[in-house]
Design a protein around this nucleic acid. Structure first.
Ligand code: MN
Ligand code: MN
Ligand code: ZN
Ligand code: ZN
Lengths: 135, 135
DNA sequence: TTTCACTTTAGAACAATTATAAACTATAAG
DNA sequence: CTTATAGTTTATAATTGTTCTAAAGTGAAA
């Protein structure tokens, strides 16, 4: 993903392409593989990468804006930090609790044969499969 | 589950059956259906139920002790509170984000046909299926 | 009964996140 | 270009969930 696309991505979701948002978006979206992160880890990586500092509040704001715009998703991981995911397609995860590392699993690589029907009056929105790993 | 079993359960896991632990264990384990809770919700329910107050620190201590003893499990739910579960068997969940309610799914009611193999050097510990609901 | 390791407790400390409000800036209008 | 302004960033305070501390209390072994 090129910088011009970053600008388009921001503008098309009603987000002004500010210096900070562009830096964060470049960092998050100009990569080939999915990136899973917490705000804390993103902050550390950005501090290392960038000369100028982006305030922590801005990182929170931006990540939430990107999520609201559908450019990031949230992954549920044990512990009390929130994990985000640059893969916004429906997919699943391996989770290595030793390293706290998430690995994507393509939705097509998981086939579920049997699933209970949703409770009365409810529908199934989506199914998430979480595979815990050990050594 | 009767009180005598509660005492056995505590003693057999090396936990002295103190007044507080017995009250909490009775509240958690003397029921037919699985109970999903956060420490906050448990605290509120206990305050309502009991005449004497149990300190929040004790509720945290006790829940952690019960979890360590294998009497409770932890469920991953979006948000930054930790959810606990009186069902310690391998099972799955429906999650209704409208009401923040978890509903158990018996392991045998989910059959997975295809799953990717674990990454190099890792093994699969367990598979958790999380079914998000909508109205 | 006495003793003491284990437990409870109030409150402090800590960690993650959100709110506040003042300074700053992208951009649209003139 | 200027200017006006709504949107944005920032430092910092506030809030929330959880863990730590250390003093007082208690279950149970002897
Ligand atoms: Mn989490
Ligand atoms: Mn959680
Ligand atoms: Zn992912
Ligand atoms: Zn459950």
């Amino acid at each position: 993903m090129k910088k011009i696309d970053i600008l388009k991505k921001l503008r098309s979701s009603g987000l002004r392409p500010t210096k900070q948002r562009v830096e964060i978006a470049k960092f998050l979206f100009e990569r080939d593989k999915t990136f899973h992160f917490t705000v804390e880890s993103l902050n550390k990586l950005l501090m290392r990468k960038l000369s100028s500092k982006i305030s922590l509040a801005t990182i929170y704001n931006t990540v939430h804006s990107f999520k609201a715009a559908g450019h990031l998703s949230e992954v549920e991981v044990r512990g009390n930090k929130t994990y985000f995911d640059t893969n916004v397609l429906n997919h699943h995860h391996f989770y290595d609790s030793e390293t706290s590392e998430l690995i994507d699993i393509d939705a097509k690589d998981v086939v579920i044969q049997k699933i209970p029907k949703a409770p009365n009056g409810k529908k199934i929105k989506n199914v998430e499969v979480f595979i815990n790993l050990k050594n």
